[in-house]
């Protein structure tokens, strides 16, 4: 079965790693994968994305507008920016924590993540807001943001990938000292997936 996934956010949030974990978990199941992401200058706090495609007959790593099954947004405003990729009935996982762009802070323009979240709630049916601020505080690390969102994506039911599959990839791809922290993030999402869903 073919899946198109868009991950988006701000450079430095761990998007590339999240995309890689999903991709290698799919490959482990024998599913062909392709992906493409922002590397280079835009990574310095700019608007970044990763396109991830799974399934047969793939030519292009890039996704067309209106064809993504799942959009994993690491930042509310960036999520709104990438809505055009979502297909009708596609799912969105979004982090509640907003990141104020330097340009907004400078010009005194108020940028409020809450407004973006309420826009998403008004516009899209299948939305899961992850309270990442609380979650990172509870877990005691801001580095688990990507794993929290990945966990929420697993529970959304739109992927044929399990928590154990991701745990295996974490074991393979990350230094051992980070394993427990990331596993606890996955566990946290599983326990809270009921409450954080809208």
């Amino acid at each position: 079965m073919n899946k198109n996934i868009v991950l988006c956010g701000v450079g430095g949030q761990g998007i590339v790693l999240a995309s890689k974990l999903l991709a290698s978990a799919a490959m482990e199941k024998g599913i062909p994968v392709m992906s493409a992401e922002t590397i280079g200058m835009a990574q310095r706090g700019g608007s970044v994305f990763s396109h991830l495609r799974m399934g047969d007959d793939l030519y292009s790593p890039m996704i067309a507008y209106g064809t993504a099954d799942l959009l994993i947004g690491f930042e509310p405003g960036e999520t709104v920016r990438r809505i055009p990729y979502l297909k009708k009935g596609g799912k969105i996982i979004v982090s509640s924590r907003s990141i104020m762009p330097v340009t907004a802070a400078l010009s005194g323009v108020s940028y409020q993540g809450e407004r973006m979240i309420s826009y998403l709630k008004d516009t899209l049916a299948d939305l899961t807001v992850v309270d990442t601020e609380k979650a990172c505080r509870d877990i005691g690390s801001s580095k688990v943001l990507n794993i929290l969102l990945l966990g929420a994506a697993l529970h959304s039911g739109s992927l044929d990938i399990s928590e154990d599959d991701i745990k295996n990839e974490i074991r393979k791809k990350l230094p051992e000292k980070f394993h427990e922290l990331n596993f606890s993030a996955l566990e946290y999402v599983r326990k809270n997936s009921q409450q954080s869903s809208r």
């Binding site: 922002t38 700019g46 507008y65 405003g77 709104v80 055009p84 973006m116």
Partner: peptide
């Protein structure tokens, strides 16, 4: 990467103004 504004207009309600987010030091 910045403004697929035309594409967003396919949605019934226009989103709040999106901030520009250029790369920074």
């Amino acid at each position: 990467p910045d403004t697929p504004a035309d594409a967003l207009s396919a949605y019934p309600v226009l989103p709040p103004k999106l901030p520009v987010r250029p790369p920074v030091l």
